[in-house]
């Protein structure tokens, strides 16, 4: 008990409380100079970059739900239906997860390069269209980053769904078949209800993880642009590019508060909607 408590305090609580404390001071480098109350928070809220980063982060969350959330569910369902080479496809689906994050981001940067000779642009040109700015296009950059993140992370999430799918008693499917249910009906009345607990948990985890998106825009857009900067990246820029560690700490606290609020709201709604609460 004691060693784990010591380690937990040292690695989790001390940095956490130090960060909160740092956010309440004027700073020089990482040194606290003078207590300034909520000044850092007010300054951060007034910064246009913060507002932009907050909106971008919400946009990341939105697209991750649209693109990244459904992909592993679909992958798991397809994989569950495959009869031959199941193991092979499972490994293939998981492989991107084993690629280091930075390497994956660099790989996708090459694919989404705005030059006419990049892979994606070559395909676009071959289809008779004009080359696109791709990752440099402010309207596309977040979507493309989410695609790269989904490619990297969907395999692991898919395995969780797959495990859940494989735990469904086959008699349910047999009964559904006997009742004349087609694939879509089996999906609706058997598969999805069984996946729901996982889906809801992974949904929250997905939102939490996407709210912390950091290195992808940094690597794929060479430090990030106004159109793609996330709250985490902004916090990093405050600390390491602007030497404003107080601002950085305040941004971190705000981000944590948003995530906590979201989680509490989710738990509240979940409780209200769950049958046990009725």
């Amino acid at each position: 008990m004691l060693p784990s408590l010591v380690l937990f305090s040292f690695f989790v609580w001390v940095p956490l409380l130090s960060n909160i404390s740092l956010s309440l001071y004027t700073t020089k480098g990482f040194e606290k100079i003078q207590f300034s109350g909520l000044e850092n928070y007010l300054a951060v809220f007034k910064d246009d970059l913060f507002v932009g980063a907050l909106l971008n982060t919400c946009e990341y969350a939105f697209w991750s739900v649209i693109i990244g959330f459904l992909a592993p569910v679909i992958m798991a369902i397809i994989l569950n239906e495959i009869v031959h080479f199941k193991g092979f496809f499972r490994v293939c689906a998981y492989l991107p997860n084993m690629v280091p994050g930075i390497a994956a981001a660099i790989l996708w940067t090459f694919l989404f390069d705005p030059s006419a000779g990049s892979m994606v642009n070559s395909i676009i040109v071959a289809l008779g269209k004009e080359p696109s700015l791709l990752i440099d296009d402010s309207d596309l950059s977040i979507i493309l980053i989410i695609i790269a993140m989904t490619w990297k992370g969907a395999g692991a999430t898919m395995l969780i769904y797959l495990a859940s799918l494989q735990s469904i008693d086959s008699t349910y499917y047999e009964a559904a078949r006997l009742d004349g249910a087609n694939f879509m009906q089996r999906l609706r009345y058997v598969t999805i209800p069984h996946l729901l607990p996982n889906i809801s948990t992974l949904f929250v985890l997905q939102i939490i993880s996407v709210f912390q998106v950091f290195y992808e825009p940094m690597v794929m857009l060479d430090g990030g642009t106004d159109a793609s900067i996330s709250l985490m990246l902004l916090s990093y820029n405050y600390a390491f590019k602007d030497s404003k560690s107080g601002y950085s700490a305040a941004t971190g606290v705000i981000l944590a508060a948003i995530i906590i609020a979201f989680t509490l709201l989710y738990n509240f709604v979940q409780k209200k909607l769950s049958p046990q609460s009725e």
Partner: peptide, 8 residues
């Protein structure tokens, strides 16, 4: 000009 918007 060389293509791209964010040339490092």
């Amino acid at each position: 000009i060389a293509p791209g918007v964010t040339l490092p």
